[in-house]
């Protein structure tokens, strides 16, 4: 589904990714772990198309399409969605406007008509209940005055409604207490199916107790230096990252 080959990325002349390779197939959950500054967030941001990153070498293919040639909104409509580490507040734009405009944009890209209002209402009510969000959240401006946990739940709500093919979640666990973590993890787990892939970017292992990955990758200094199964995450939790780095240099 996603194929990243030899990806080199710089931000303002600073080299962040130095030849990253990653393949994700439908149905898989991948976790990218690594120390701060290794380039974890850069990877998902580049795939989603955020400004300010320069790809100097390499390719990203999503279902055979060249992602780097696609506009930000085209990537989202094709099914590539990024849940932000720090979701921003958008004063005055109601959640419900965002959800409906986004869903209809996606449908239009597939050649479908706008979603009928009753169907949309049923969908958002159902999904916000799953995320334990009061329906009044839908009327509020996107993330405005939301707590950290509410913002993260709102990111997952968007995923539940937009049903991406590849859901990328950047540090979705940061700033969550244990209850909120459970709600968020349940939401993400409900997205798991044979046709969808999930990419988790995380610093800590604890998220992976709730969302068990199929593959764990360690990203150090712009490269994936080690890959393994879910047990790799536990090992990292015990031993830190230094041993992986030493192993990779050796």
């Amino acid at each position: 589904m996603l194929e990243v080959k030899d990806l080199h990325v710089t931000i303002e002349d600073k080299v962040i990714l130095k030849g990253l390779n990653l393949t994700i197939n439908a149905g898989e959950v991948h976790a990218i772990m690594g120390p701060n500054g290794a380039g974890k967030s850069t990877l998902s941001a580049v795939i989603a198309g955020k400004d300010g990153y320069e790809v100097t070498q390499g390719t990203i293919l999503f279902e055979g399409q060249d992602v780097l040639e696609m506009e930000i909104e085209e990537r989202a409509r094709a099914g590539l969605l990024l849940g932000f580490q720090y979701p921003i507040e958008i004063p005055g734009v109601k959640n419900i406007y965002l959800l409906k405009a986004a869903l209809n944009a996606q449908r239009a890209a597939r050649g479908e008509g706008e979603i009928p209002a009753p169907e949309f209402m049923k969908l958002v009510r159902e999904k916000s209940a799953e995320m334990k969000m009061d329906p009044s959240f839908l009327q509020r401006a996107v993330n405005e005055g939301f707590s950290g946990g509410e913002k993260k739940r709102n990111e997952i709500l968007q995923m539940l409604i937009l049903q991406p093919k590849l859901a990328m979640l950047d540090e979705i666990d940061s700033g969550l207490d244990i209850d909120a973590m459970k709600v968020v993890a349940d939401g993400v787990n409900s997205l798991r199916n044979a046709d969808r892939a999930i990419l988790l970017v995380t610093h800590y292992q604890r998220l992976l107790n709730h969302i068990v990955p199929d593959h764990v990758h360690v990203l150090v200094d712009g490269r994936i230096v080690k890959s393994g199964g879910k047990e790799l995450a536990l090992e990292l939790e015990d031993r830190g990252y230094d041993w992986v780095l030493e192993e990779s240099v050796a």
């Binding site: 989202a76 990024l82 921003i88 958008i90 734009v93 965002l98 986004a102 944009a105």
Partner: peptide
């Protein structure tokens, strides 16, 4: 904010329209 809306599939003119209206 324009980026945040586009990242959900909303095209740029529409994102700008939504923000202007807001």
């Amino acid at each position: 904010a324009v980026y945040a809306l586009r990242s959900r599939g909303i095209d740029e003119p529409m994102a700008r329209a939504l923000l202007t209206l807001a």
